[in-house]
Design a protein around this nucleic acid. Structure first.
Length: 412
DNA sequence: CCACAAGAGTGAACCACAAAACAGC
DNA sequence: TTGCTGTTTTGTGGTTCACTCTTGT
C-alpha cells in the first residue's frame, strides 16, 4: 500500500511541499496552500514516483514517472540503454493552481486519475494560480532566468550547478545550468544553448549528442524561494548572520582538532564566494569538497546573492558538530552524504520545520554557551569556592588573605 | 569634520592546589 | 596485562589590568 496524503490521509499524494515537508494530494495541496498569503508562497513540486518521499525534479516521459535526484540517478545515471529516455524537468510552483492549470504546464498530469479532485474540491474557486507564479515558476521566459538571477538561487540549485562540474553521468540534474537559458515548455533545439568549454572536459554544445539527451525545459531559478532555503527572509537572514556568530556555526566536534583553523587551506576568495546558504554547509564539507574551488561554482555562488557573501576569517575552532546542526546543517551532511543527496529544499530532511527547531536549538545553545560557564569538575569548583584569595588571586594556605569564603563579610 | 578625553565594556592574566592525566616500572 | 608510584597537566573563581569602543566636548 502506497503512501497517503499527509493532510487527508486518504488520497495518494502527488505533491511535495518543501516548506511543510509534506506529501499532499492535489486537493489538499490547494486547500492547505490557499489558507493565506504565506502558504501560497510555499514552493511545491511533484512527488517522486520512485521513492514516494522525495520531491521529483524530472519527469521521465518514457517511463511516465516523476523522479527525484536519487531515483533519476539510479534509473538513468549509469544505464546507457535507459539514459536515452526523454525526460522533462519538473519545476516548482507556488500559489494555488487547479489541477487543470497544472496540467497545462505539466501535460503528464492528465494521467492523474480524476479521483484526485474529490471531496476536497470545495474552495477550489478560491484557488487561482497567481500570475506572478505562473511567470516565475511555470513559464519562465527566456530572459527571466538568465545570468545572475538564475545563477544560484538556492542551495538546491547551487548543488545542481555543483554537480554539473563534477558529474559525468547523464543525470537530469546535469542539464541544470544550460536549462537556465531554455525557455519553459520548449525543447526547441534551435534555442541558444550554453556551451560549457570548461577545462574539465565537460562541454555541452549545440550539436552534442550528449546534450541532446536532455530534455530539460525549465528550471526554477529565482530567489523567490529564498526564505525556504535559507530559512528566513533576506533581511532576516542578514540579521541572523549578524547575530549568529558565524564562527560558532562551524564548530568542530573533536576537541583535538579544536585549534585547527580548517579554513587555512582555503583561499579567501573561495570562502567568500560561499553564499549565505553556507550556513547549511559544514566547513568540513567545504574543506573536503574540491569542487568548492571550482571557479564556476564560486562565480555562481558569488552572483547568487552578492550581499550574502561571507568571510570565514572569523572562524574559530571552538565548536561541536552539534552546532552544525544547530544552525540548520543536516546531520547527514556532516556524515558525508552522497553527492546527489545535497541538503536543501529538495531534501525533506532539510525542511522549514526541522530548520526551525534547529535554529531554536542553536539559539538556546548559543545562549547557554555565552552565559553559562560549564563546570567540568565540580570538586574543583567546590575547592576553588572555599579557597583563600588575595585580590582575587589564590593564596597559599596559611597566608594572610582578604577573603575568607567561609566568612560572610568580604574585604575590598 | 577632526582630535582628544572620559567613561563603559570586554577579555586575559594571575594565583594555589586538588584532581586528573600520564609515564615508567 | 594489571597495579602501583611519581610526575606533569588541568581546572577552578574573584579581582585587576590592559585594551577597545562609545560618547561628549
Amino acid at each position: 500500500m502506497g503512501q497517503l496524503c499527509d493532510f487527508c490521509g486518504e488520497q495518494r499524494p502527488m505533491v511535495y511541499c518543501r516548506s511543510d515537508a509534506a506529501c499532499l494530494c492535489l486537493s489538499c495541496d490547494r486547500n492547505v496552500h490557499s489558507a493565506n498569503a504565506l502558504s501560497k508562497r510555499h514552493s511545491r513540486t511533484l512527488l517522486c514516483d520512485g521513492c514516494s518521499s522525495q520531491p521529483a525534479i524530472v519527469r521521465c516521459i518514457d517511463e511516465k514517472a516523476s523522479l527525484c535526484h536519487n531515483c533519476d540517478w539510479n534509473r538513468h545515471g549509469r544505464s546507457i540503454p535507459t539514459s536515452g529516455h526523454k525526460r522533462q524537468s519538473i519545476s516548482c510552483y507556488s500559489g494555488c493552481p487547479s489541477a487543470s492549470e497544472l496540467s497545462k504546464n505539466w501535460s503528464f498530469l492528465l494521467d492523474i486519475p480524476p479521483t484526485e479532485d474529490s471531496h476536497c474540491e470545495q474552495g477550489l474557486g478560491l484557488m487561482r494560480i497567481e500570475e506572478e507564479s505562473v511567470s516565475k515558476f511555470m513559464c519562465p521566459p527566456g530572459n527571466s532566468s538568465t545570468g545572475e538571477q538564475a545563477s544560484a538561487s538556492n542551495m538546491d540549485d547551487i548543488g545542481n550547478v555543483d554537480k554539473l562540474n563534477s558529474w559525468s553521468g547523464p543525470s537530469a540534474v546535469d542539464a541544470f545550468p544550460s536549462s537556465g537559458n531554455q525557455p519553459a515548455g520548449s525543447v526547441d533545439s534551435t534555442a541558444p544553448k550554453l556551451c560549457n568549454t570548461g577545462t574539465d572536459g565537460f562541454g555541452m554544445c549545440e550539436n552534442d549528442e550528449f546534450y541532446d539527451e536532455f530534455s530539460v525545459e525549465d528550471v526554477d531559478l529565482n530567489f523567490d524561494n529564498y526564505n525556504e532555503y535559507f530559512g528566513t527572509s533576506r533581511n532576516h537572514s542578514e540579521q541572523l548572520f549578524d547575530d549568529a556568530e558565524i564562527d560558532s556555526m562551524f564548530d568542530v566536534k573533536n576537541p583535538s582538532s579544536a585549534n585547527e583553523n580548517h579554513l587555512d587551506e582555503f583561499p579567501a576568495e573561495d570562502c567568500k564566494a560561499q553564499p549565505a546558504s553556507s550556513n547549511v554547509v559544514s566547513t568540513d564539507s567545504v574543506k573536503s569538497n574540491p569542487r568548492c574551488r571550482s571557479p564556476k561554482v564560486c562565480f555562481l555562488a558569488r552572483h547568487g546573492h552578492s550581499s550574502l557573501s561571507l568571510s570565514f576569517s572569523g572562524l574559530t575552532g571552538e565548536s561541536s558538530a552539534g552546532d552544525y546542526q544547530d544552525c540548520g546543517v543536516s546531520p547527514t551532511l556532516l556524515m558525508g552524504e552522497p553527492p546527489w543527496c545535497h541538503s536543501g529544499a529538495g531534501n525533506p530532511a532539510f525542511t522549514s520545520a526541522s530548520r526551525e527547531t534547529a535554529v531554536k536549538r542553536y539559539q538556546e545553545k548559543k545562549k547557554a554557551r555565552k552565559f553559562e560557564k560549564k563546570i567540568r569538575y565540580e570538586s574543583r569548583k567546590a575547592r576553588a569556592d572555599v579557597r583563600r584569595r588575595v585580590k582575587g588571586r589564590f593564596v597559599k594556605a596559611g597566608e594572610a588573605y582578604d577573603y575568607d569564603p567561609l566568612c560572610q563579610t568580604r574585604s575590598f
